[in-house]
């Protein structure tokens, strides 16, 4: 195949764009797609202070590279989840990436901040690892952004991530989630007068126009040494099953993913706007973070604090967390 732009030897073909690109023009294409998403969804201006959540995987490192290349003031935030040697390797990859580019990086550890790793939380609370992990990451990313004074939290969710989430939310008709599924989640402020404070930082997903295969290809052509292996706790994860099913549809009908996601944003998202409880946010009685206002008589404690206190009670009762099972998916 030949590059659509220069007719040189192509290394990546993108069927939904009916195009192939050489290394240089593929890099330019991806930069353009990210710049287009930032502009189209009014994500941030040229002077914003950005905090990007990085895992050591392809999507977040690729996006960090892209934003640096586009000239943004972007700092990395790595949260050590304590998932055995997988976390060790992903932290090393992230630090190496930052050092090579002289990029700013903040590193925190879940166990040091709150006393529990992701495997310990999953085991002590009998919760699916990915669910507890997601809750902890959302909480810590937001806390770090607020404490360190950033305007915007950036995440590496790509088109496949968003389509798989949308697919799952439609399968189960999670209308509350559909109301909040977009490339931008606006900031939230709690309290009034002197007690008015930022509670949730604005969150954006600049990779929504880029498919997962393309972020991986970008990482390869840019020589980004990301963690190729999958998290050992993800086995059987439903999000992954959705992605495989959607990849088959995309294969037989290129453009399906783009059509599903951007069609949803254009034609359906606004119809779910009234379905969310997000309007009823109050501060958690324990940590102050926003949580949905409880029904009368129940405690006003956020789901993060509830999970932490359950894990602490179990640990105090002598319940011991099982060790991490490290098993490859394929």
């Amino acid at each position: 195949m030949k590059c659509k732009v220069c007719r040189g030897h192509a290394v990546v073909d993108i069927r939904r764009h009916n195009a192939a690109f050489c290394t240089d023009h593929f890099t330019e294409h991806i930069h353009n797609q990210v710049a287009k998403a930032i502009k189209e969804f009014h994500m941030f201006g040229p002077d914003a202070r950005l905090l990007i959540a990085v895992s050591g995987g392809k999507d977040s490192l690729a996006l960090w590279d892209i934003l640096l290349q586009l000239g943004y003031d972007v700092t990395g935030f790595y949260l050590d989840l304590g998932i055995g040697s997988y976390s060790t390797r992903s932290k090393e990859a992230t630090i190496a990436f930052a050092e090579e580019r002289d990029a700013k990086l903040i590193v925190r550890s879940l166990a040091e901040e709150h006393g529990f790793t992701v495997p310990e939380l999953a085991s002590l609370t009998n919760r699916v690892p990915c669910s507890g992990c997601g809750l902890n990451k959302r909480y810590e990313f937001n806390r770090a952004a607020l404490e360190e004074g950033f305007d915007i939290l950036v995440t590496g969710h790509n088109l496949d991530d968003e389509v798989a989430t949308l697919f799952g939310n439609v399968l189960h008709w999670n209308t509350d989630m559909l109301a909040r599924q977009g490339p931008v989640l606006e900031e939230r402020v709690l309290g009034e007068g002197d007690r008015r404070r930022m509670a949730l930082v604005r969150k954006v997903k600049p990779l929504v126009r880029v498919a997962e295969r393309e972020t991986a290809a970008y990482a390869v052509v840019r020589g980004i040494d990301y963690i190729v292996e999958e998290c050992p706790m993800v086995e059987g994860n439903v999000q992954h099953k959705y992605k495989e099913a959607i990849a088959m549809l995309e294969e037989s009908s290129p453009g399906t993913k783009h059509q599903m996601y951007f069609g949803f944003l254009k034609k359906a998202a606004s119809r779910f706007a009234d379905e969310t409880d997000a309007a009823n946010l109050v501060g958690c009685a324990n940590c102050g973070s926003p949580t949905i206002a409880p029904e009368a008589g129940s405690d006003r404690v956020c789901s993060f604090c509830r999970m932490q206190s359950l894990a602490q009670r179990r640990r105090d009762d002598g319940y011991r967390a099982r060790p991490v099972r490290v098993r490859k998916r394929r």
């Binding site: 959302r138 997962e212 999000q239 992605k243």
Partner: peptide
């Protein structure tokens, strides 16, 4: 032959 699809927590706020 490098797999590119990863699983994970997903969710709109993740």
């Amino acid at each position: 032959v490098r797999p590119v699809l990863s699983g994970g927590a997903g969710g709109p706020g993740s």
